[in-house]
Amino acid sequence: MNYSLQFGQIAADVPYILSGAWPTLWITFVTFFAAAVLGLFIAMARLKGGPLASRLAGIWVTLTTNSPLFVVLFFLFNGLPNWGILLSPIAATLIAFIAISSGYLAEIQRGGIQSVRQAELDAAETLGMSRLQILRFVIAPHVIKTTYPALSNFFIFTMLGTSMASLVGVNELTGRAIEVSSRTFRSIEVFSLVAVTYVVLSLFASAALALVGRWLFRVNARMI
């Protein structure tokens, strides 16, 4: 055991590695919101669509939630070029992440929509609420309250998952760590720095999500 930790040797690369948090964050945001919208449509198709639409939505959910993201990513990035479709690393990443996440987010939102009871809707109608008012004051608060914890969990999950993008060559936090560690050979230093960065980022994200939930939607989300 003749390895001694030398953080000094990577000091010059620290700003470069840490600024990898930006690609990580924007990929997370784009993935999460695009997949959430797509997932909402899939959930609606499953619940309110015709027999064909709801069947197709069900198949999509089964396929995406049972496929490993990493393998899908490799399939898109390494498999498709043989068939003439060349995707850039970032395009492959976004397609794979949004496709897979849409299945999970559809299931979460379906659960939320189903948890609105018919009696509540009937009551709102009896009170003379318009459809828009029902959506705004009855359905939306209920759905957000029931799905918020699961959604914020999934947000953190997506953030951690984006590290896989490094394996097809996206230069985000983990990608930069791999690059610097293969240049300087200070692997443990680099990866422990990145690990701490992920912990800090996701703690901030959890705290922010809990606060947003409390102020905007009156959800009692746990901070940690």
């Binding site: 055991m1 951690l160 983990t174 443990i188 690990a195 703690l203």
Partner: peptide
């Protein structure tokens, strides 16, 4: 619990790999 739930598995894997190779 809080730390290992907040590190991507890939990073944990690399950390364990390099630490094991050191020891």
């Amino acid at each position: 619990v809080e730390i290992f739930r907040r590190i991507p598995f890939l990073v944990t894997l690399f950390l364990v790999l390099y630490t094991a190779q050191m020891i």
